[in-house]
Amino acid sequence: MAVVFEKTKGLTDKPFHYCPGCTHGIIHRLVAEVLEELGLVDKTIGVAPVGCSVFAYDYFNCDMHEASHGRAPAVATGIKRVHPDKAVFTYQGDGDLASIGTAEIVHAAMRGEKFTTIFVNNAIYGMTGGQMAPTTLVGQKATTAPLGRMEDHAGMPLRVSEMLATIPKAVFVERVSVHDVKHINQAKKAIKKAFQLQMEGKGFTLVEVLSTCPTNWGKTPVESLKWLQENMMPYFPLGNFRTPEEAK
């Protein structure tokens, strides 16, 4: 019988621990497929964050490193500078990247470190049980914002992609979503572009992926995808914020 579909070689055979309906699984696969298509699986070193995706090191079929909370860009900086010919990526959530690790990501981008960051934004702290994150929307309820995030008290959510796009050495910054097939395909294109530009030595590259958390949002997977579109996308608009002129 002819093989019509195979799981990407960029992933190990270990089953994901993610809750059903969580989009980490989709995003893992997109990254892994891109690595495979670019022939990079055995030339890649990934850095896992702290958060629900802490076990990412068990799922990607390449060398992997665990970093302290928020410090993945610092670890990736070291790895990439020692192995400039290898593909290096960090995989970080919004609690990890946009809160405790804000300094690391901003300065890695400022220095133009030549690695790729996959930034998964689901507007909440998932692993610790649904606390307010810097990306939590105004009015969105969280365990530490039982009445919803209040603008006067907690400010407005941080738009990481827009912020990083102001940094000259952040050469590729794009926000994508994985709520339907069309957007999943677009997300893959962006991730592929980011890795290509990294390998061409252009500078720092980041893809922000809007994601869900059915468990802590208290919604079914389908409701969650709808909530993402209706609530997250207006505040976190999809699109490319930076691409090198010659790559356009």
Binding site: V54, F60, D63, M64, H65
Partner: peptide
């Protein structure tokens, strides 16, 4: 060390969890 497998070995994982 995490140096990329170069297709010659199983992936190395550095963690403390």
């Amino acid at each position: 060390a995490t140096t990329g497998t170069d297709g010659k070995r199983q992936p190395n994982i550095i963690n403390s969890l």
